[in-house]
Protein backbone atom coordinates (compact mmCIF):
# COMPACT_ATOMS: atom_id res chain seq x y z
CA UNK A 1 0.00 0.00 0.00
CA UNK A 2 1.45 3.42 -0.89
CA UNK A 3 2.16 5.85 1.92
CA UNK A 4 -0.87 8.02 2.64
CA UNK A 5 -0.88 11.57 1.34
CA UNK A 6 -2.96 14.67 1.93
CA UNK A 7 -3.66 17.65 -0.30
CA UNK A 8 -3.24 21.25 0.77
CA UNK A 9 -4.81 24.03 -1.28
CA UNK A 10 -2.89 27.15 -0.46
CA UNK A 11 -3.77 30.75 -1.18
CA UNK A 12 -1.03 32.38 -3.23
CA UNK A 13 -0.59 36.06 -3.90
CA UNK A 14 2.54 37.93 -4.85
CA UNK A 15 2.36 41.71 -5.10
CA UNK A 16 5.18 41.81 -7.68
CA UNK A 17 3.68 39.15 -9.92
CA UNK A 18 -0.11 38.94 -9.51
CA UNK A 19 -3.07 41.26 -9.66
CA UNK A 20 -5.28 38.73 -7.93
CA UNK A 21 -4.69 35.68 -5.78
CA UNK A 22 -4.98 32.07 -6.81
CA UNK A 23 -4.85 28.68 -5.11
CA UNK A 24 -2.13 26.12 -5.56
CA UNK A 25 -2.47 22.44 -4.65
CA UNK A 26 0.30 20.48 -2.99
CA UNK A 27 0.19 16.79 -2.31
CA UNK A 28 2.38 15.82 0.61
CA UNK A 29 2.91 12.83 2.91
CA UNK A 30 0.26 12.49 5.57
CA UNK A 31 1.49 12.08 9.13
CA UNK A 32 -1.01 11.66 11.90
CA UNK A 33 0.95 13.75 14.41
CA UNK A 34 1.56 16.65 12.04
CA UNK A 35 -0.11 19.99 12.44
CA UNK A 36 -0.96 22.11 9.41
CA UNK A 37 2.18 24.17 10.09
CA UNK A 38 4.33 21.03 9.77
CA UNK A 39 2.72 20.38 6.40
CA UNK A 40 3.42 23.93 5.25
CA UNK A 41 7.02 23.68 6.44
CA UNK A 42 7.34 20.45 4.47
CA UNK A 43 6.14 22.24 1.34
CA UNK A 44 8.52 25.14 1.94
CA UNK A 45 11.52 22.85 2.51
CA UNK A 46 10.91 20.20 -0.12
CA UNK A 47 8.52 21.41 -2.81
CA UNK A 48 8.21 25.16 -3.14
CA UNK A 49 10.58 27.60 -1.44
CA UNK A 50 8.55 30.57 -2.62
CA UNK A 51 5.69 30.04 -0.19
CA UNK A 52 5.63 32.89 2.37
CA UNK A 53 4.13 32.62 5.87
CA UNK A 54 5.01 33.48 9.45
CA UNK A 55 5.81 31.06 12.24
CA UNK A 56 8.09 30.63 15.21
CA UNK A 57 7.31 28.90 18.51
CA UNK A 58 5.10 26.06 17.10
CA UNK A 59 3.55 25.70 20.58
CA UNK A 60 0.68 28.16 20.47
CA UNK A 61 2.12 31.10 22.34
CA UNK A 62 3.98 33.43 19.91
CA UNK A 63 0.84 34.15 17.90
CA UNK A 64 2.59 34.25 14.49
CA UNK A 65 0.95 31.44 12.56
CA UNK A 66 -2.76 32.27 12.45
CA UNK A 67 -4.40 31.24 9.16
CA UNK A 68 -7.83 30.46 7.79
CA UNK A 69 -7.98 26.68 7.71
CA UNK A 70 -11.00 25.42 5.80
CA UNK A 71 -12.56 28.81 6.42
CA UNK A 72 -11.99 28.94 10.16
CA UNK A 73 -9.34 31.11 11.83
CA UNK A 74 -6.87 28.79 13.60
CA UNK A 75 -3.29 28.72 14.80
CA UNK A 76 -1.73 26.45 12.20
CA UNK A 77 0.55 24.99 14.91
CA UNK A 78 -2.51 23.78 16.81
CA UNK A 79 -4.62 22.46 13.92
CA UNK A 80 -3.84 18.80 13.26
CA UNK A 81 -3.99 17.28 9.80
CA UNK A 82 -5.93 14.36 11.29
CA UNK A 83 -8.87 16.71 11.91
CA UNK A 84 -9.23 17.03 8.12
CA UNK A 85 -7.77 13.83 6.63
CA UNK A 86 -8.50 12.37 4.11
CA UNK A 87 -10.14 15.52 2.81
CA UNK A 88 -8.01 18.34 1.40
CA UNK A 89 -7.10 21.24 3.65
CA UNK A 90 -7.66 24.75 2.32
CA UNK A 91 -5.28 27.31 3.79
CA UNK A 92 -5.76 31.05 3.41
CA UNK A 93 -4.38 34.14 5.10
CA UNK A 94 -6.43 35.41 8.05
CA UNK A 95 -9.65 36.98 6.81
CA UNK A 96 -10.35 40.71 7.07
CA UNK A 97 -6.70 41.76 6.74
CA UNK A 98 -4.86 43.00 3.66
CA UNK A 99 -2.55 40.31 2.29
CA UNK A 100 1.13 41.22 1.97
CA UNK A 101 2.00 38.02 0.23
CA UNK A 102 0.67 34.43 0.29
CA UNK A 103 -0.29 33.70 3.92
CA UNK A 104 1.26 36.88 5.32
CA UNK A 105 -1.20 39.55 6.43
CA UNK A 106 -0.55 43.22 7.19
CA UNK A 107 -0.67 43.90 10.93
CA UNK A 108 -0.22 47.68 10.84
CA UNK A 109 -3.85 48.40 11.67
CA UNK A 110 -3.81 46.38 14.87
CA UNK A 111 -0.44 47.72 15.97
CA UNK A 112 -1.85 51.21 15.63
CA UNK A 113 -5.04 50.38 17.50
CA UNK A 114 -3.18 48.61 20.28
CA UNK A 115 -1.27 51.77 21.04
CA UNK A 116 -4.49 53.80 20.92
CA UNK A 117 -5.92 52.04 23.98
CA UNK A 118 -2.92 52.89 26.19
CA UNK A 119 -2.10 49.29 27.07
CA UNK A 120 0.19 50.02 29.98
CA UNK A 121 -0.25 50.56 33.69
CA UNK A 122 -1.26 54.16 34.41
CA UNK A 123 -0.88 55.60 37.89
CA UNK A 124 -1.35 59.02 39.36
CA UNK A 125 1.59 58.44 41.68
CA UNK A 126 4.36 55.99 40.97
CA UNK A 127 5.54 54.22 44.11
CA UNK A 128 9.34 54.08 44.31
CA UNK A 129 10.79 50.65 43.54
CA UNK A 130 12.52 50.63 46.91
CA UNK A 131 9.07 50.42 48.54
CA UNK A 132 8.58 47.06 46.89
CA UNK A 133 5.72 45.62 44.90
CA UNK A 134 2.16 46.93 44.75
CA UNK A 135 0.06 44.55 46.76
CA UNK A 136 -2.42 42.55 44.73
CA UNK A 137 -4.30 39.59 46.14
CA UNK A 138 -4.88 36.42 44.10
CA UNK A 139 -8.52 37.49 43.75
CA UNK A 140 -7.45 40.83 42.34
CA UNK A 141 -5.14 39.07 39.88
CA UNK A 142 -8.00 36.78 38.87
CA UNK A 143 -10.14 39.83 38.06
CA UNK A 144 -8.06 40.70 34.96
CA UNK A 145 -5.86 37.65 34.35
CA UNK A 146 -8.02 36.17 31.62
CA UNK A 147 -7.73 39.33 29.50
CA UNK A 148 -3.95 39.41 29.96
CA UNK A 149 -3.66 36.07 28.12
CA UNK A 150 -4.08 37.62 24.64
CA UNK A 151 -1.23 36.57 22.34
CA UNK A 152 -2.18 39.07 19.59
CA UNK A 153 -2.66 36.26 17.10
CA UNK A 154 -5.44 38.17 15.31
CA UNK A 155 -7.80 35.19 15.02
CA UNK A 156 -10.52 37.28 16.70
CA UNK A 157 -10.26 40.00 14.07
CA UNK A 158 -10.46 37.36 11.35
CA UNK A 159 -13.62 35.99 12.97
CA UNK A 160 -15.33 39.38 13.44
CA UNK A 161 -17.84 40.37 10.72
CA UNK A 162 -18.07 43.85 12.19
CA UNK A 163 -14.36 44.34 11.55
CA UNK A 164 -14.84 42.93 8.05
CA UNK A 165 -17.49 45.53 7.26
CA UNK A 166 -16.07 48.41 9.29
CA UNK A 167 -12.28 48.23 9.39
CA UNK A 168 -12.15 51.27 11.67
CA UNK A 169 -13.66 49.19 14.50
CA UNK A 170 -11.16 49.02 17.36
CA UNK A 171 -11.74 45.28 17.50
CA UNK A 172 -11.79 42.45 20.01
CA UNK A 173 -8.12 42.09 21.07
CA UNK A 174 -7.44 45.80 21.52
CA UNK A 175 -10.58 46.24 23.62
CA UNK A 176 -9.84 43.13 25.68
CA UNK A 177 -6.38 44.49 26.41
CA UNK A 178 -7.82 47.86 27.42
CA UNK A 179 -10.11 45.97 29.80
CA UNK A 180 -7.12 43.98 31.07
CA UNK A 181 -5.62 47.23 32.40
CA UNK A 182 -8.98 48.77 33.42
CA UNK A 183 -9.66 45.79 35.67
CA UNK A 184 -6.15 45.70 37.18
CA UNK A 185 -6.31 46.89 40.80
CA UNK A 186 -2.96 48.67 40.32
CA UNK A 187 -4.21 50.76 37.40
CA UNK A 188 -5.76 54.21 37.61
CA UNK A 189 -6.03 54.98 33.91
CA UNK A 190 -9.54 53.91 33.00
CA UNK A 191 -10.73 57.45 32.27
CA UNK A 192 -7.82 57.90 29.83
CA UNK A 193 -8.86 54.80 27.90
CA UNK A 194 -12.56 55.67 27.97
CA UNK A 195 -12.35 58.25 25.18
CA UNK A 196 -11.05 55.67 22.72
CA UNK A 197 -13.18 52.80 23.99
CA UNK A 198 -16.43 54.78 23.80
CA UNK A 199 -15.58 56.51 20.55
CA UNK A 200 -17.57 55.95 17.39
CA UNK A 201 -15.29 53.08 16.39
CA UNK A 202 -15.02 51.62 19.86
CA UNK A 203 -17.10 49.24 21.93
CA UNK A 204 -20.48 50.39 20.58
CA UNK A 205 -19.61 49.13 17.10
CA UNK A 206 -19.73 45.60 18.48
CA UNK A 207 -23.04 43.85 17.82
CA UNK A 208 -22.14 40.80 19.88
CA UNK A 209 -21.76 38.19 17.20
CA UNK A 210 -19.53 36.40 19.68
CA UNK A 211 -17.31 34.66 17.13
CA UNK A 212 -14.15 36.34 18.48
CA UNK A 213 -14.56 34.37 21.67
CA UNK A 214 -15.11 31.15 19.74
CA UNK A 215 -11.96 31.76 17.68
CA UNK A 216 -9.71 32.76 20.60
CA UNK A 217 -7.12 30.02 21.25
CA UNK A 218 -6.30 31.43 24.70
CA UNK A 219 -9.86 31.62 26.07
CA UNK A 220 -9.56 35.36 26.52
CA UNK A 221 -13.26 35.88 25.73
CA UNK A 222 -12.95 39.26 24.00
CA UNK A 223 -16.71 39.34 23.37
CA UNK A 224 -17.25 39.25 27.11
CA UNK A 225 -14.64 41.95 27.62
CA UNK A 226 -16.43 44.23 25.16
CA UNK A 227 -19.85 43.69 26.75
CA UNK A 228 -18.42 44.36 30.20
CA UNK A 229 -16.84 47.55 28.88
CA UNK A 230 -20.24 48.57 27.51
CA UNK A 231 -21.87 47.94 30.88
CA UNK A 232 -19.20 49.88 32.75
CA UNK A 233 -19.41 52.74 30.28
CA UNK A 234 -23.22 52.84 30.59
CA UNK A 235 -23.08 52.91 34.37
CA UNK A 236 -20.58 55.78 34.12
CA UNK A 237 -22.95 57.67 31.85
CA UNK A 238 -25.89 57.26 34.20
CA UNK A 239 -23.75 58.36 37.10
CA UNK A 240 -22.76 61.50 35.24
CA UNK A 241 -26.32 62.29 34.17
CA UNK A 242 -28.10 61.47 37.42
CA UNK A 243 -25.43 62.69 39.81
CA UNK A 244 -23.64 65.49 38.01
CA UNK A 245 -22.59 66.87 41.38
CA UNK A 246 -21.68 63.42 42.69
CA UNK A 247 -18.06 62.83 41.92
CA UNK A 248 -17.13 59.49 43.39
Amino acid sequence: MPDPTITLEIFRYHPEQNETPSFRRYEIPYREDWVVLDAINYIKDHIDGTLAYRWSCRMGVCGSCGMMINGTPRLSCAAFLREYYPNPVRVEPLANFPVERDLVIALDDFMHKLREVNPWLIRAHEQPLSDGEYRQTPDEVAAYKQYSMCINCMLCYAACPVYALEPRFLGPAAIALAQRYNLDSRDQGRSQREAVLSSEDGIWDCTLVGECTVACPEHVDPAGAIQRAKLASTIDWYKRVLMPWGGR
Partner: peptide
Protein backbone atom coordinates in the same frame (compact mmCIF):
# COMPACT_ATOMS: atom_id res chain seq x y z
CA UNK B 1 4.04 45.98 -7.83
CA UNK B 2 0.38 46.00 -6.80
CA UNK B 3 0.72 46.25 -3.02
CA UNK B 4 -1.26 44.43 -0.36
CA UNK B 5 -4.32 42.62 -1.63
CA UNK B 6 -7.65 43.42 -0.03
CA UNK B 7 -10.14 40.62 -0.29
CA UNK B 8 -13.69 41.78 -1.00
CA UNK B 9 -16.40 41.01 1.57
CA UNK B 10 -19.29 39.35 -0.34
CA UNK B 11 -22.79 40.55 0.54
CA UNK B 12 -23.62 36.94 1.37
CA UNK B 13 -20.95 36.78 4.08
CA UNK B 14 -23.54 35.82 6.69
CA UNK B 15 -24.48 32.66 4.81
CA UNK B 16 -20.95 31.26 4.96
CA UNK B 17 -20.97 30.21 8.56
CA UNK B 18 -23.65 28.90 10.91
CA UNK B 19 -22.73 31.32 13.68
CA UNK B 20 -22.99 34.33 11.39
CA UNK B 21 -26.32 33.04 10.09
CA UNK B 22 -27.76 32.63 13.59
CA UNK B 23 -26.49 36.08 14.45
CA UNK B 24 -28.28 37.59 11.45
CA UNK B 25 -31.38 35.64 12.40
CA UNK B 26 -31.26 37.17 15.86
CA UNK B 27 -30.86 40.64 14.38
CA UNK B 28 -33.82 39.89 12.09
Amino acid sequence: MTGPYRRPVPSTWWLHNRAYFLFMLREL
